[in-house]
C-alpha cells in the first residue's frame, strides 16, 4: 500500500519535472534537456551537474516525504554511484571530473542523511524552514522526568542482558516515533513534527548511551 503510494508519487514528480525544466540545457552541447532527472545529457551523454537546492530527497527523485523505502533508496544510491563515481571519470575532461566529484559527494551526503531516521527527520524539518537550535528549551516537565528516569534505569542496569532489554525497548519507542513523525509531516503539522523530532533526539541519545555502556563492557553485536 505504502509502496504503491510512493511509486505513484514518484511518477507524478517525474511528470512535473519534465515540464518544469524547459530552461535546463546541457552545459556541454547546449541541447535543451527533456528531463533533469537524468544524470547524463541524452544527446551527448556527458555528465550533468546536480541542482544546487540542497534537497536530499530530490537527489533520489523522491517527494519531500518522511516515508522513504530503504531498499529502494539503497538501490538507487548504488546505481547512481556506479555511474557517478570519480573513478569512472579518470579519462574524462577536467570539468566532467569536477562534476563527478561534486555529484558523487552530494549523493553520499544525501544517502547518509536519508538513511538515518533522525537525520532524515531533521533534514525534512529544515526543508520546512524549521530547525532545532541550542536556544530551544525542553520545558515539558513530565517528559523531562521520564527522560531522567530512563537515564537512571540505564545507569543502574547491572547485567548486559538488562541493558540489551532496555535497548530493545528504546528501539521500539524510536520506530513508533518514526511512524508518528511520518504521519505528522504528511498531515502538515510542522510544529508538532518538531516536538516529535525533539523527542526522537532524546531517545536517540538514550540509545547512544546504552551502546556506549555495552561497548565499554566489551559487548558488540
Amino acid at each position: 500500500m505504502f509502496l504503491n503510494t510512493l511509486k505513484f508519487a514518484n511518477s507524478r514528480l517525474k511528470i512535473v519535472l519534465k515540464y518544469s525544466t524547459v530552461a535546463a540545457k546541457c552545459w556541454k552541447c547546449g541541447v535543451s534537456r527533456q528531463s533533469q532527472v537524468d544524470l547524463f545529457c541524452e544527446k551527448c551523454n556527458v555528465i550533468q551537474a546536480p541542482t544546487k537546492e540542497g534537497n536530499f530527497f530530490k537527489v533520489f527523485n523522491y517527494q519531500n516525504s518522511y516515508n522513504v523505502d530503504m531498499k529502494d533508496l539503497t538501490n538507487k544510491y548504488r546505481k547512481m554511484q556506479s555511474v557517478l563515481h570519480p573513478d569512472k571519470f579518470t579519462n574524462k575532461s577536467k570539468e566532467e571530473q569536477q562534476i563527478s566529484e561534486e555529484y558523487s559527494s552530494l549523493v553520499n551526503k544525501a544517502y547518509n542523511t536519508l538513511q538515518i531516521p533522525l537525520s532524515r527527520a531533521l533534514h525534512l524539518l529544515s526543508l520546512h524552514g524549521e530547525v532545532i537550535t541550542e536556544n530551544d528549551k525542553a520545558t515539558d516537565q513530565n517528559f523531562l522526568m521520564e527522560m531522567m528516569e530512563l537515564n537512571e534505569e540505564i545507569e543502574e542496569a547491572e547485567t548486559p542482558d538488562a541493558l540489551k532489554a532496555l535497548d530493545l525497548k528504546n528501539k521500539q519507542v524510536l520506530s513508533q516515533l518514526a511512524l508518528d513523525i511520518a504521519k505528522t509531516f504528511d498531515g502538515g503539522n510542522i510544529a508538532m513534527a518538531k516536538e516529535l523530532i525533539i523527542k526522537m533526539k532524546y531517545f536517540n541519545s538514550l540509545g547512544m548511551r546504552i551502546n556506549t555502556l555495552l561497548r565499554d563492557r566489551g559487548i558488540v553485536d
Binding site: I132, D136, K137, N204, S205
Partner: peptide, 30 residues
C-alpha cells in the same frame, strides 16, 4: 531542564534553611 539540540537532561536541587541560606545542592546530568 533539557537541551533539545543535544538531547541532554539536567536536574539540579537546592536545600534552603529557615534563614534563606542554601545549605545543600545536588545535581544529576545526563
Amino acid at each position: 531542564v533539557g537541551a533539545p539540540a543535544c538531547g541532554d537532561v539536567m536536574k539540579l536541587q537546592i536545600k534552603v534553611d529557615d534563614n534563606g541560606k542554601i545549605i545543600d545542592a545536588k545535581f544529576k546530568t545526563f
